[in-house]
Design a protein around this nucleic acid. Sequence first.
RNA 1: GCCGGUGUGGCGGAACUGGCAGACGCCCGGGACUUAAAAUCCCGUGAGGUUACACUCGUACCGGUUCGAUCCCGGUCACCGGCACCA
Length: 841
Amino acid sequence: MKYDFSRIEKKWQEIWEREKLYAAENGTGKEKFYGLVEFPYPSGEGLHVGHPRPYTAMDIIARKRRMQGYNVLFPIGFDAFGLPTENYAIKNHMHPRDVTKRNIARFTEQLKMLGYSFDWDRVVDTTDPEYYKWTQWIFLQMFKKGLAYKASMPVNWCTSCKVVLANEEVVNGVCERCGSEVVRREKSQWMLGITKYAQRLIDDLDDVDYIERVKIQQKNWIGRSTGAEVRFRTTAGDELIVFTTRPDTLFGATYMVMSPEHELLKKWEPLLENIEAVRGYQAEAARKSDFERTELQKDKTGVELMGVRAVNPVTGGEIPIYISDYVLATYGTGAIMAVPGHDTRDWQFAKKFGLPIVEVVKGGDIEKEAFTDCETGVMVNSGFLDGMPVEEAKKTITEWLEGRGLGSAKVNYKLRDWVFSRQRYWGEPIPIVHCDRCGYVAIPEEELPLMLPDVESYETTDTGESPLAHMDEWVNTTCPHCGGPAKRETDTMPQWAGSSWYFLRYIDPKNADAPASKENIGYWMPVDWYNGGMEHTTLHLLYSRFWYKFLYDLGVVPTAEPYQKRTSHGMILGLNPHNFANLPAEEQEELLKTCGSEEAARHHLVEKFGEMAEHPIVKMSKSLGNVVNPDDVVKEFGADTLRTYIMFLGDFEKAAPWQANAVKGCKRFLDRIWNLAEERVDGSEDYSAANEADVHRAIRKVGDDIEAMKFNTAIAALMALVNRYYESKPSRGDIKALLTLVSPFAPHIADELWEIQGFDGHASVAPWPDYDEAKTVEAEKEIAVQVGGKLKTTVKVPADADDDALVAAATADEKIMRLMEGKTLVRTIVVKGRLVNLILK
RNA sequence: GCCGGUGUGGCGGAACUGGCAGACGCCCGGGACUUAAAAUCCCGUGAGGUUACACUCGUACCGGUUCGAUCCCGGUCACCGGCACCA
């Protein structure tokens, strides 16, 4: 019989669903395992070939855990609020809810087609009112604790989407979604106080098992730096406060710089002699997009404040104050003390404006450039700090400032509070009303969920108001506090809201009284293993840790961290069809003929398609036409082949290109398994004598490799085992072992052959086999024999041979004897059970 | 500029803690089966060299440590990802 994957896959998917084979049980005595993948955004395009990589990986792990006897929770859901759906709905005159419903149906079908062992009774959908009720509830708790607050601040405004973006959504100064220019605008926004949790978000990384690069990236993103806050007196009377990581260089502060948005500037206006120039510069800075600001960073600009000067607290000298956009309003205090001798930016600015540059740490040449690499230097020109090493000077000056009330030690973070409002329709309504008398008031919890009303038009307005603002009936309400007239908040939450706690809802998806019951949270949390993309490291991953910590403080969850372990997969890339190496052979030849040389051909391709043509491996994109659709692969080769190939194609953690050709190899592998077991093999369930050691080794290798996410080598080991079975006919026991090991990777074929063989139950939930270390070794093994560190030959020795026996065997080898002739053996190195190295003279 | 990562055959990639480089797969070549092709099965496949051995070279490049280096150390180059005027 032929391996009819379509029939088999459909058959087993139905059986699994009917038998609820993969359902998690709440609160059993069994040990639990909670495996999590990032739930997809159900886009109109359907599942991308990038989705199956992390999903298959965690499915393999979940399946193995189940076979090992764990009570496994392996859920899936949909992160369905968001812009693309809304934009699509606007364009096609549909309701976003209907678009979402359709897309979820499509995704569900595709995910089922791939045979994932998700618990389909626990699906969550962030757009379901029963779900977002709790998203709103968490927001209200934050509001009550002062963590959610409204602030007017410069925000990133996408000129095309007409929406305020979080800092994280601005990439290289342009909108992450549409690539349009982003400018700054003053707007009143809901903010979440994530910065209050900055230190804990750093510290608690020590207690979790995340891959190192994730920890490092999060730490860098939070950007802790230690230094001091210093208060400078000014001739205006107000103090100008700055943050510096180098208080030791205070004697070298020869001028100061404020950001153009600094709030003192307004107050100082009457004192400024060049008010027009200052205002002009401020206006220009506001108009510039972030992109322009950073692109033109080489050339420093600025205006001196005429009429106000500052006093350096240690030298007592008056120094000028400038405004310049190289100082950011959003970091530190929005103003700096400039030390041009030891800071590159200050140096450039000082050179341009002819300001004095003073050396305060010895060792560099401040005429040529700022001497910044001076943490190990010694202070000069610094009064009472002279002669001290930098570290000591930092301490001394900080104490000196503290003693006089002129400053204090201070920690600063790059992380900023989270802009939480969106002027869009398709998001969770923010459950707050504004009352002229009472201010911002939370709506009562009993009124949750605050339903997203139907509106006639989802279009945003140029003024940046949410479409909800047009709904007078909905907007006008009464204040829950005083009963007077009030208006609802019309902004909605960002997409990151729903995904910040979804893993809790899976635990108890139908609970009407709480995000999830305390008892079930206690049993299931924390998530044991969470795999997801590196692109979510500084956004979703950080946000959800923050929300979880907040819930921990409320007593809703029992642990400080949501995820015990975090791993990350590499992207699936595509071959660039415009790269010379990837052209079909005929086209290559033709090009060689017309262009003369390969170099000329490559050059021709670059001219035709741009620089991109130089890269053989690129991101998949519609415009290049190298996008692989999982449906097509499943149709042609089956889900088991797709699963196997996607795990086999390279190191899971690294990016790897999809190579259509290589899929066949995995199909062939499954065909060969089919051929071995399509007819019942009778006899004992012991391993055959000939294959026993290979089976034990395979059990060890596959098990270890799954734990280490080295799926590619696990599959290679299985292929090797199958090849072995072709050399030496497998027993019934050999077949059983193979099917068990294959089952997590290719569960359909494993269950079908399991049934054909007449084994009990299903391979999917069969006990994971044990191996016996002692039985993994053959009776005889081959060891390497080196002379002078170079391999000369190999010899066979009994597995239990001791060092002396290895040397004896090596020196008895004919070839080695020949090489030793006329020489003396000066040294012998033996690596236990592996190698003998003879040093001759 | 800063942080992190990577560099191994024609290709994707293996290699324990410093111990036989190239597992496994793709491509390619040869053979068996077939009227034939496909599929399947078997064999070969880093480069040079030889009838065949022998032997030599080979993990981006230069150097070091070591009996022995893809792995450790110093330096150089290239590419990828993230951050980027963060005081």
